[in-house]
Design a protein around this nucleic acid. Structure first.
Length: 468
RNA sequence: CGGGGAGUAGCGCAGUCUGGUAGCGCACCCGGCUGGGGGCCGGGCGGUCGCAGGUUCAAAUCCUGUCUCCCCGACCA
């Protein structure tokens, strides 16, 4: 990470927005706090979405779609849930040209509307488990929005499931956390995450237990990248979701809900981005290789086209940049800003030497390769660069995660990273003290890496940090 | 809501303290030269300085009021 910028906290937002603007990923939308995602950014998102969707389906869940507008009364049915969301609701008061008798809210999340359907769909243990996922946009009227990380409107997937037993719901929630979220973040985004349990203070409104994947951004701040909740029977009671069990008894279902959003694109920018713009992990890059004609010359275009064909046949997403009207420097900068993983430069001089110039975004180096063989080597290089980004992000995370000796110590360390200390040494009271300094307990983890079933047990550590 | 800051050309800014009728970079247009990392030289187009009022011979600049935006904090995927 030689030329990598490690921004100071105060100038970080500026750096971040410049990268986004230059990379043409997003721009401010018409309503404060919303955002527009440009085609290049969306192409990255589409690949990530597909990767997550595939993993979700592997757990047995299926996609469905529910209404955007929810009667306010639905939200009121679960006390903690409505309390948690009320301040950030966008409310529709007019329709059809007149004031509505009862206000309708734009969904901030869909537990209530989904569960009103679940109540009708579920009657027998044979209907369980019911595993539903929805890709949709939701609205939360945030006090202070941040591009990508906390926009008023965002695109996400939200899963909603119903199970016959608490144990089954518990296992499923953890399965989503590990096999869907953590796996996609590591394998696709090349970002390592801490998987842990939320404290009572931090858990989702309406949940019994919340689990999350926490990422470490380049400035040392935490980003909650995905959450999975055990809802217990809270919504089942509120929406009367019951089933006849094998023994003939009528029982309420046990539920989970879980979500991950376009915030993940923000994480990619904040973890992998550098002075020169984005660095998109090869697995997510819409264009993995750009073959750039540095200068026109006899046979150059033909050779470049052949190279593109060879790469495409090898399954590499490749683009030809033969726009010699535009200066080489400008085109190179454009591709760097967009984070294209590998750039091959070809001109008359290279052709004469039977070579190409190869520049790899992940490692900021430029080299030459033999023209006849380079197409064969590229797939392996892409895999290496994917691993390289993960290695860099892992070094970042580990370097910024330190053991703390006390709450005061943790508060110090949280100025630029994560602090880890026994949860027993913190507790609800210590958590409040940290909160006054803008530091929160991101999640609870066990030394042996297993899920935290009992927060008060021995060997449970708190990971604390400042969060976005 | 509390604390800071900013509104001047399409974009980014200087000029404001010490009033004299607006300037720089990028972009754009024209010509030429260049062409392996955001080209160079020359020539152009473009704004009456957020808005309203006041002081003055004269206001981007001073005074009063007002609107908007941004940043930090509180709420949060």
């Amino acid at each position: 990470m030689s030329s990598v910028l490690v921004p100071q906290e105060q100038d970080f937002p500026r750096w971040y927005q410049e990268v986004i603007a230059k990379a043409q990923l997003a721009e401010n939308g018409p309503v404060r706090g919303t955002m527009v995602i440009r085609p290049w950014g969306y192409a990255i998102w589409e690949r990530l979405e597909a990767a997550i969707d595939e993993r979700i389906k592997a757990t047995g869940a299926r996609n469905a779609y529910f209404p955007l507008l929810i009667p306010e009364a639905y939200l009121r049915r679960e006390a903690e849930h409505v309390e948690g969301f009320s301040p950030e609701l966008a409310v529709v008061t007019h329709g059809g040209g007149k004031q509505l008798e009862e206000a309708i809210v734009v969904r901030p999340t869909s537990e209530t509307i989904v569960n009103s359907s679940f109540a009708k769909w579920i009657s027998s243990y044979r209907d369980l488990p019911l595993l539903i996922n929805q890709w949709a946009n939701v609205v939360r009227w945030e006090l202070r929005p941040r591009l990508f990380l906390r926009t008023s409107e965002f695109l996400w997937q939200e899963g909603h499931t119903a199970h016959a037993t608490r144990e089954e719901a518990h296992e499923y929630a953890l399965r989503i956390l590990a096999e869907v979220y953590a796996d996609a973040m590591v394998e696709e985004l090349a970002i390592p995450v801490f998987q842990g349990r939320k404290t009572e203070r931090e858990k989702f409104a309406g949940a019994e237990v919340s689990w999350s994947c926490e990422g470490v951004m380049r400035d040392g701040k935490a980003l909650q990248m995905g959450t999975s909740h055990e809802l217990g029977q809270n919504f089942a009671r509120a929406f009367d979701i019951q089933f006849s069990d094998r023994d003939g008894e009528l029982r309420h279902v046990w539920q989970t809900s879980w979500g991950a959003s376009t915030r993940l694109i923000g994480a990619m920018i904040m973890v992998h981005g550098d002075d020169h713009g984005l660095r998109v992990p090869p697995r997510l890059a819409p264009v993995q290789v750009v073959v750039l004609v540095a200068r026109a010359g006899e046979g150059v275009i033909e050779a470049a086209t052949t190279l593109v064909d060879d790469l495409q046949r090898a399954g590499v997403r490749t683009e030809l940049d033969g726009n010699v009207e535009v200066s080489v420097g400008r085109r190179i900068v454009d591709h760097e800003l967009r984070g294209v993983p590998i750039r091959l430069e070809l001109g008359p001089r290279d052709l004469a030497a039977d070579q190409v110039v190869i520049a790899r975004r992940a490692r900021a180096e430029k080299d030459t390769a033999a023209l006849p063989y380079v197409a064969l080597e590229i797939p392996n290089m892409l895999a290496q660069d994917q691993a390289e980004l993960l290695a860099q992000a892992t070094a970042l995370r580990d370097g910024r995660t330190r053991a703390a000796r006390s709450i005061d110590d943790a508060r110090e360390l949280a100025s630029d990273g994560f602090a880890r200390l026994p949860w027993k040494a913190v507790g609800a009271e210590g958590e409040n003290r940290l909160a006054q300094a803008g530091v929160s307990v991101r999640c609870l983890v066990r030394e042996d890496g297993r899920p935290v079933d009992d927060p008060d047990a021995a060997g449970v550590d708190a990971l604390v940090a400042r969060a976005y």
